[in-house]
Computed example of a mutant assay.
Amino acid sequence: MNRDQNVPEFSRPLKAESVGPRGRIEKLTANPAERAALAERFSILTVDSLVAEIELRPHRRDGIALKGRLVADVTQACVVSLEPVPEHVEVEFERVFEPGAENADATFSVEELFDPEGEDPPDPLIDGIVDLGDVVAEELALSLDPYPRAPGAEIPAAYRPEPEAEAEKAPPQGTHRPFAVLKGGRDT
């Protein structure tokens, strides 16, 4: 596909200043060409539908906070049989965009950045614009089943792992001396 690598497949840019003090709601629907391009990007068979509703509100001085919900129907290839596997996706998400957020490591410690229970650092708001379509595409990608499997699909017996040989039996309780090697095998 010959497309500009800097333009997302599903692009809906929005200027932060257009949100206003009361916020606003945006409804997005991907057209057939956008859905086909997203399917190619995600290496799946099809994106049959993709719609989202996003509530935007001002955040701090120049940022935007958004809360959204996307609904999509996609088809992926089964990881075992390659048969088509339809999937219905419904996801709610929240994101915050702030100018200067591309330098998040300067404001968040390493512990904060890698704390799974912690607050996510804000996404960068570059030139005062957030691409709502690309946000929705990212959330869809994160929500796809990584191992889609058709009902009844089983790995052929020739490709299944062999049963593991019986592990060596541990010596009876009290007879194993793990530090004996350090002492040259002597009992003390």
Rank of each mutant, 00 (worst) to 15 (best):
T188W: 00
M1K: 10
H176I: 07
I25A: 09
F10D: 09
M1T: 10
E98P: 01
R3C: 06
P121A: 13
V7W: 01
L66I: 03
I54D: 04
D48K: 03
R12V: 14
A36K: 13
L45N: 02
Q173F: 10
V136E: 08
E139N: 12
T107F: 14
A158Q: 11
G152D: 09
V135R: 07
V47N: 05
R22L: 13
P156T: 03
G152M: 07
P178H: 05
A101G: 07
D187L: 13
V80D: 05
L142Q: 11
L28P: 01
P148H: 02
F10L: 10
Q173D: 14
R95P: 01
E87S: 15
V181M: 08
F179E: 06
Y147N: 11
S18N: 12
P161N: 10
F93C: 02
N2P: 01
A39F: 09
G128S: 04
H59W: 14
V85T: 07
E168G: 04
A39R: 08
P146Q: 11
P84Q: 09
P116Q: 07
C78S: 14
G23C: 01
V7G: 04
R95Q: 15
F114V: 10
D145G: 03
A52F: 06
I54L: 14
A165W: 00
D73M: 06
G23M: 03
I64F: 12
F108R: 01
E87A: 15
E9T: 02
E112Q: 15
G185Y: 08
F114D: 10
V130I: 12
N2T: 12
R41T: 10
V136M: 05
L144Q: 06
G63P: 06
P148C: 07
V47P: 03
V135I: 15
Q76E: 03
A39Y: 04
K67R: 13
E55Q: 14
V136I: 08
G20S: 06
R60W: 01
A150Y: 10
E164S: 12
F93L: 05
H59M: 08
E111Q: 11
L38R: 06
K67F: 00
E98C: 08
N2K: 12
A167M: 07
N103D: 15
I25S: 11
A33C: 00
E90I: 04
V89S: 05
C78Y: 06
E83A: 15
T175S: 15
Q5S: 14
P156M: 10
I155M: 14
D127T: 00
P163H: 02
P86Y: 04
P161S: 10
E94Q: 13
S11R: 09
A137F: 02
V47T: 05
E26Y: 00
V85H: 07
R61N: 12
